[in-house]
Design a protein around this nucleic acid. Structure first.
Lengths: 239, 239, 239, 239
DNA sequence: CATGAATGAGACTTCATTCAT
DNA sequence: AATGAATGAAGTCTCATTCAT
């Protein structure tokens, strides 16, 4: 549609890349603070101490710029999660990591961006909407994988759609974040995040477990494993 | 402040009330579709087939109009919930009603408005923010009451803050809605809503119950052993 | 020009006249307070507690209304001056009356109208300008007559254009009024007016007198008249 | 207050300064012709053959633009007067210079601006009023100084407030200007100004001198007797 | 490459005025 | 006669975007 118009080639090179990084960094701030519509190219250029025209030298327009900001932000989050997820540990531990990491990343700078995504993701007209779907998919992929594996092994319940489980985890997180923003409490974030993440997983964990396991069966299993452990302990020493 | 100028008296009659209703109805649509900034008074007037000036005859400005739209929408939701909540039935049944009602109201038209509230509620400067706080409180009041009563009677857990429980219920709902919007599947909504509401409560219900510490610990142990076994299985083959 | 458009007939009758008087009274206030452009038909109607449309039932438009307001105001002033001017007394006394009367009429309500005339009288486009010239002439006529008579009798100087003398009297009056408005001192107006009028005439009077009369000749004349008076006094008694 | 939004940095260069001068020049014309309210940014832009937006690139709004126009105009007048006032010469000569200079400056372009100041200086609300008070003071300062010095030396009368003397000089000037505008006679301005200035000072000068009480009283007596004689003459015939 | 400068398009808003009732 | 209701026309102002230098 629009792409009939000829687009000038954007600059490239080491210096150019630094420029681009700077513009993206500041744009992220501005879009996060003000949202897409209220953010202005003027503001971005001014915070950088450069001319507005320069911004347009490196990006084809406000929309593209914003799209890049959001993509980069997603990439960052996805990268941190994929790099740090303690795959060796228990599902619950991985879940806690996931929640904690997200809360931290969002609270530090991401709430505005979160709002940005939420509100711009739905624009009807010539909005940013198209950009989001694949990003959203990549973004939730680690969590979906985690849940899928846990379900295959029977560790978590299989009687409900995975997407519902995902919503039950991401939803509260977002809600908590909005609440935090609304209340402007930015004090003692670190501590709060730790505790909130632990509390939230503690709260949700029972919801994820298979509902049909009988306490009696559990006890029996517990007893048997204990006995096996004790027997092995005679040979191997305490684990 | 600057309002030395006298404002035209608003029309008030049977016809006028119909006009106001019409304008509000269409404005709700437009704001919901486009958000505050992208929505234009021109669009609203055009959809109604009236002059823009007429809109300003009934509302003092875009902001006031939007505020009214949001207030009315909240009022609607609050009204429906308060009127229909089956207080005589079990907590779980009430919760199901609450979830079902919200999903329905939001899906029918409210998602855009939801986005509106979410994104405008945080606007700096002379935004709509001030309007929202009390509305938000009234809006969550029925749920908070429900939870508080259930907690006093020992029916649900008391070891975590109520606000967390609230987030664990409202959050997933919003997330589900966003998901639905993003996917544009508006087919078979009625059936979906019924099932989704039932599923969601089924999912969350165990999370709300007081943690039977024994059972919980057992379940966790069970899960962890299973996981360890699987991990080892990768190396050793099935035992 | 504009008068090609058909004008509806205006209402007439006793009731109608009262209406017209009311509208004119309030319009005068509003125009005086706000000036032509900032005054609105809305404001006028609202202060009267009537509908805007009613104003247009009695006047063809804002412009005509304002023109009537100004005409009536001029008529008032002219009437008061013509009725009260003490023609039997000395020129100086008449001048004092003229100045005092104007200061009072303007200060009580006229300053806004004065501003109105001053600023609207000069509008290039489709302004009110045409209305003013004849009014201005009628308005200054009493003063011009007074000066003309005094000049014919040799009482005041004949070496300068009458229009200059007129400016030397009206100009300071307006300047004093502007000053008073600017300073917002509306305290003790009555007393101030009295004194200011006396002072101003005292100041200007020497300027009006013929400059060439020799003090010596005056003294001689004085002596002769005095002698004549004394002689007559012997027959007639003290005057 | 609401100025959270960042304002575009104003251009600043040689070209920019020329632009600013052009805009100010034309704006002065337009405001002078039409007054603040009737003047439009559209008109200003059109006369310059530029886009309206360009005007707003250099000035933050109509009000600021108008304020600048008036300030510049005051500065011009003040500058010319202060630079040219022949302080070495007689008080009367200085007064003549002052009057002549003002008449010239005002007649050439200033009458509209004079009206602007007069009518906008009194606007309620967030008008231009605040700008004027200090300007007005600087503007009248040279005249006030001149009068004060002359009074100290006993050259002019001390029995009336200085402000009255000032009004007696500035007032007629303004009145003469209004008159000139109203009559649209812009022919032979130079010659007219010279003569009018000389005449006006000739007229007012006696008013400023200390009242030689004897002479003044005599003149008054003379005038009154003459008047009485004339009046009686109407009845009695010439004596 | 960077930018100063300009602008088209469009937003919200006001208000005198008309007309059917 | 009075008015409720509607509106055309116009005004101020913003901002993403372009282009010559």
């Amino acid at each position: 549609m629009d792409d009939i118009t000829v687009r000038r080639r954007l600059p490239a090179g080491a210096k150019a890349e630094q420029r681009i990084r700077d513009i993206l960094r500041v744009s992220r701030e501005v879009f996060a603070e003000l949202g897409y519509e209220r953010a202005t190219t003027t503001e971005i250029a001014q915070r950088l101490g450069i001319s507005e025209a320069t911004v347009f030298t490196y990006f084809h327009g406000k929309r593209e710029l914003c799209a890049r900001v959001i993509e980069d932000w997603y990439d960052e989050i996805i990268g941190v999660v994929e790099a740090g997820l303690p795959r060796g540990q228990s599902t619950k531990a991985q879940l806690e990591f996931y929640v904690r990491t997200h809360l931290r990343l969002f609270l530090i700078q991401g709430t505005g961006l979160c709002a940005l995504v939420l509100s711009e993701g739905r624009a009807k007209g010539p909005g940013l909407g198209e950009v989001f779907v694949p990003l959203q998919r990549r973004y939730t992929a680690p969590l979906m994988d985690l849940l899928a594996r846990a379900r295959e092994s029977g560790e978590i319940r299989a009687d409900l759609p995975l997407s519902l489980l995902r919503s039950a985890i991401l939803g509260p997180m977002e809600h908590i974040l909005w609440d935090a923003i609304a209340r402007q409490r930015e004090v003692d974030i670190e501590r709060d995040i730790e505790r909130t993440a632990r509390d939230l997983v503690a709260l949700l964990w029972p919801a994820l477990l298979p509902p049909d396991l009988d306490t009696a069966a559990l006890r029996e299993f517990y007893g048997e494993v204990g006995a096996a452990l004790r027997r092995a302990g005679g040979t191997l020493g305490q684990p």
